[in-house]
Nucleic acid binder design. Structure first.
Lengths: 244, 244
DNA sequence: CGACAATTTGATCTGTCTCAACTATGGTGG
DNA sequence: CCACCATAGTTGAGACAGATCAAATTGTCG
């Protein structure tokens, strides 16, 4: 089991090259650890956090509530992610940050992160890059929700979650645990929970994904990618492609 | 008519406080001016630009092509916007940047921007903030496309475009020129051009927006905002609200 | 074991798409 | 200055993807 700092560093290194000094500086960040139950808010829209939150275990998400009370999840977050680095530069939360599953998180004072960016130009660049990658993922979600069929849309989300979990070592080969309910997948893809169910069934019927409880196995990565129109460039990962 | 540098500064100041030194530093940026006709690409997916592009006049957009050739526009850009500041940190374009209308643009070498950020901590923060605001707008678009009806969705986009143009002085009271075709609005909202037409007709019928050619007039800002579920916090503007 | 949450399935409804035709509109060359 | 052409907007009819509603089944956790 990695330490909190190493979980954060591992995630950053999926998309950034760090040198020893960078890692040491990150290890110096003060962390306040907290355990949060599932389906709870960490920061709410309108709040003005003074700390950033890093996910250490479990799954988090960011979401908005639109008029009429419908929910749109705009991102999922896995261990190592810092979902609200934006609060470093934008005082007021324009969305909610919450947990999907029970989670351990680390709270890091803004001041400490600003200090580390001031001391090390390279880390300022790293944080900027992380922010840009986040933006890139949002763009892909816009395209996914706006222009893909329900089937491709859900498949695409599964591809993305699988690849992101894979790169941080949370997938065993083609098998990974994705503890996200159909209702939540619906809120992320702009579909109804019922239709998520039918779509997952189709993926199962086509022998693309096998699901047992929360554990999914990709049966045919090549065909799934193709169906999903999944081209992972937008994640801007450094590492190797996933073996087919 | 403002100079290119002042157009860029004006846009930045809608969301950031600059001091005299910041403005002077920005005025020192070397600009290569170009005129581009409408409906043309500036940077394509896969390219590795070495310059950032700022829009000086006209309307630009960023878009993705999904499998099957359908297009999703992920953002519109008005004078002063720097649509691809992301290329400072992500080598490879994951989307296309193009013009909607004929446009004048300024190309700014990455090196010059990096230099100005290195010299002035405050400007590094400004660029980081600009990037975060961009991300915030993407999140709102995800929610808009994912969870709002066609009518609210189109109304929301109109509200956003109006407010953004208003803050940079491109709206005369409640009247502004939005030279975007129905097909393009459809590509931005995930709807068909035909349905955009019907939706605009409804907005007209309800006396919310009047349209003559490319010139739109907001007839009832309060009701339009309400219908659109438009709460502009996500733009993180500094200025005053629009008068109703 | 009981209770609550999540999944599954069926039936029906509807918002939006697609296809197709027709009508402005604006720009261009003769 | 007009005729022409391409582009954009408009309208109608019909089809369909996905929503909604309702109920049954399964899973999970105290």
């Amino acid at each position: 089991m990695l330490s909190p700092h190493e979980i954060i560093i591992r995630q950053i290194e999926t998309a950034n090259r760090l040198d020893g000094g960078d890692r040491d500086a990150l290890r110096g960040l003060p962390l306040r650890l907290r355990t949060i139950s599932g389906n709870r808010d960490i920061f709410r829209e309108g709040h003005r956090p003074t700390e950033c939150c890093a996910i250490l275990s479990g799954v988090g998400c960011r979401y908005k509530i639109v008029g009429g009370g419908r929910r749109q999840i705009v991102s999922f977050h896995f261990p190592g992610d810092m979902p609200d680095s934006q609060s470093l530069f934008l005082e007021k939360m324009d969305h909610n940050l919450g947990t999907i599953t029970p989670a351990k998180v680390a709270l890091i004072p803004h001041a400490a992160i600003i200090a580390v960016m001031d001391q090390r130009r390279s880390l300022a660049t790293v944080f900027a890059r992380q922010g840009q990658i986040e933006g890139s993922i949002f763009r892909e979600w816009v395209a996914n929700i706006g222009r893909r069929s329900a089937l491709a849309r859900v498949a695409h989300l599964i591809c993305e979650c699988f690849e992101r979990m894979h790169t941080i070592g949370l997938a065993d080969n083609a098998t990974f645990e994705l503890p996200i309910t159909h209702a939540e997948l619906g809120d992320a893809t702009g579909l109804s929970n019922v239709h998520i169910n039918r779509t997952m069934r189709t993926l199962r019927g086509d022998n693309l994904v096998k699901t047992v409880g929360k554990v999914h196995t990709i049966c045919d990565w090549t065909r799934l990618r193709e169906l999903a129109d999944y081209r992972p460039d937008y994640l801007h990962l450094l590492g190797k492609d996933i073996e087919t």
